[in-house]
Nucleic acid binder design. Sequence first.
DNA 1: AATATGCACAACCGCCTTTTG
DNA 2: ACAAAAGGCGGTTGTGCATAT
Length: 327
Amino acid sequence: MVKSEKKKKQNNNGNMGVLGVGVKKGPWTPEEDRKLLSYIQQYGHGSWRSLPAKAGLKRCGKSCRLRWTNYLRPDIKRGKFSLEEERTIIQLHALLGNRWSTIAAHLPRRTDNEIKNHWNSHIKKRMTKMGIDPMTHKPKNGSQHLSSNLNHMAQWEAARLEAEARLVQKPKNHQTQPPCGLVSSSIQDHQKTPTKVPPSYPPCLDVLKVWQGNLWSNYAINNESLQSLISNSNASVATPAMPVLSHVYNINGSYDQGPTTKHNDATEIKMDPFEDFTYVDDANFVNDDPLRSPDFWEEFVDLLDGGWKNITNNFSMITSPPASPVC
DNA sequence: AATATGCACAACCGCCTTTTG
DNA sequence: ACAAAAGGCGGTTGTGCATAT
């Protein structure tokens, strides 16, 4: 059987019961939710394919899984995204692209679907409005500011590719863990405090740590400024800021509870081992919205340029040589 | 009041990867 | 080693609600 035929067969009747006869589609009713929730709480989800019949649902397993992971799971946070969450999404998107599940792993209790929707309906539009290409995170008409700095952009892209390569190489099971390290697939987990498991993220995200802790803080230190990009709602600012990457991963990849972040009282993350990593000249960005400043991107690039030397120096300690893009 | 439009988000679809036999 | 099943991901669509005309 050729591959395409195999795929067709799989999609039509082999993929967790999609398109089966009598399979209900569309919005879930409260009764269906109750059945699914009750069953999983009692027995765990087990095999998604066989779950609908056991739970008395006329749904395909895939639909049940999505309903559970995106809506019914008890550890889901709903409602507006905080400033810090939006900031994290933007930063991670710059690093990882549309890897929503990976991004979701760094936003406790948020689902990939929710983040994806929020990106598409809010952040992406705002970036576009401001003339920033949401895919490249570069100014659309700002090439004049950037043309002389292609080198650092190439560095950025290289690091991003390296990060991606690491993600590819890393066993995928880290991605399948529910956000926040919650193990939710067995009955026990619903009956007692969810088990915290140390997620095993690749050390490549140390790049993000550096960026987040140093570079971005120079520009985002004025929350009003950041607000113009990542939100147009006061409520979002009023939302208590969630810690971003409050669990820090050591350069050897091990889990570290790390320095906690209390954004509400302005305690900054300390990004050891890069704590000496500093930028100068943030005075230009305290008066006005830096993201609207005509000089923003030029200075942003300069900042990156200087910062990159530091980042790449530190990064090189934890990575293989450029010739070998993976760990 | 009726209709059009925009927005948010839940849900689906198709493809890919991983697991299992 | 291979095929099939199961699970997961990202893109897209559908639906309901709010607002504008």
